[in-house]
Design a binder for these strands. Structure first.
Lengths: 218, 218
DNA sequence: TTTAATTTTTAAGTTTACTTAAATTTATAA
DNA sequence: TTATAAATTTAAGTAAACTTAAAAATTAAA
């Protein structure tokens, strides 16, 4: 058994709405690596407990209570990531999984102290905004997936998806770091892959990879 | 359900042997606040998995594998306590429970980095020694429970049991801090309570409380 | 040393969060 | 529009870690 908690479901739902734009049982199941049936079960409970509004076959929506909960988990996650990376110097591709565990094991009081110690950071090491104590999320400049940009456009890397450590290892090896300036040299219609210039180097990225890198356009 | 893990059982067993001097199912149950029947169940499993040597009605003993595991959990616990107290400034009576959760959610790699960040502390805020990476435990000067000392003896406080936050709040309010010098002014035969001098103040402590305060004798 | 009290174990049952397989509903395509 | 495919839900069952109550073993006391 995987024993995934209420918190994980709520975070997953929040992130799906935020990043994929839609919330479906199958997507939740995929995200949490459990069966769709398990998701149905839990949705019923979350509905009963007032964390989501759920009508079978129809829709899934976080209630204010559920959203508050989700944001507080995301806050914990991103603060821990920041601590692990900035303070302890852990490798950037490992902090996501480690923070995933810590976020369930720390009180609000602890996390507030941690935030203070870190001097109230606004973004985590992968470029995600960190909600403050009240749940407000720092505004990020308009960002767009690298895969949605066109030839000759330019900008700088502001976020890289953190859910697959393999991706983070890869992007790091290619020199794709947060803050780095990029220029789109070419985009192949054939498979959607892009060729970019970064640090005077030319790097080619598949569409899938490019869709996980977010750019702040000039 | 409380869902206590293998780790908790092993730590509890280790500490019982270390502090109470004997390991009995009932003591484990009391420590973890679960039924004795649950303990029997788990002992069978720990035996099967090679963490303890267990013969029913007869005895419970950690195997080297179990001991190694327990020490690693204790190391995590005490390093987290040190971090929470020293680095984040959390109240001293709260860090035990918080560390209790964190210890299950951190990899060895993380804890090694944490230890380095904390500059390899040897004792935690309650005066317990912190095992190093290899499992070696810093030698503490000979300590004795305050309840076992006699009139006119003196020494300094080197450890206070951390399992009841109520006790920690109490001792702190009485000015009983690690490192403080004490002198036993009187000991009542009636109920075993002791009267001590600390910081030019006179404090009276019940036998039960005194048995949780450990002194390094002069 | 026999009885009584205590401790430990066994037995039976509960809860939670899953699983797979079958049934149902919704979406897509001929 | 109807058939087929895909997504979702229901049903039935499992595993882990508990619970209480009863039974068995050990320890303490008369």
């Amino acid at each position: 058994m995987k024993n995934i908690s209420k918190e994980d479901y709520l975070s997953a739902i929040y992130k799906l709405r935020d990043e994929a734009g839609e919330i479906k049982p199958n997507l939740i199941a995929e995200n949490l690596e459990i069966s769709a049936a398990a998701v149905t079960d839990m949705l019923k409970k979350l509905n009963k407990d007032g964390y989501v509004r759920y009508q079978k076959y129809k829709g899934i929506k976080l209630t204010p209570k559920g959203e508050k909960y989700a944001i507080s988990m995301i806050r914990k996650h991103r603060l821990w990531e920041t601590f692990l990376f900035e303070t302890l110097g852990m490798p950037w591709e490992k902090i996501h999984n480690e923070a995933e565990k810590l976020e369930h094991s720390s009180s609000d009081e602890l996390v507030d102290k941690l935030e203070e110690f870190l001097n109230f950071p606004e973004f985590d090491p992968h470029g995600y905004p960190i909600p403050d104590k009240a749940g407000n999320i720092p505004k990020q400049k308009q960002v767009i997936a690298l895969s949605d940009m066109n030839k000759n456009e330019k900008g700088k890397i502001s976020r890289i998806s953190d859910f697959k450590s393999e991706l983070l290892v890869y992007t790091k090896r290619q020199g794709l770091n947060i803050g780095e300036k990029i220029f789109i040299k070419d985009k192949l219609e054939f498979d959607g892959s892009v060729v970019i210039n970064i640090n005077n180097k030319e790097v080619s990225l598949s569409k899938k990879i490019a869709s996980n890198i977010f750019i702040e356009k000039d």
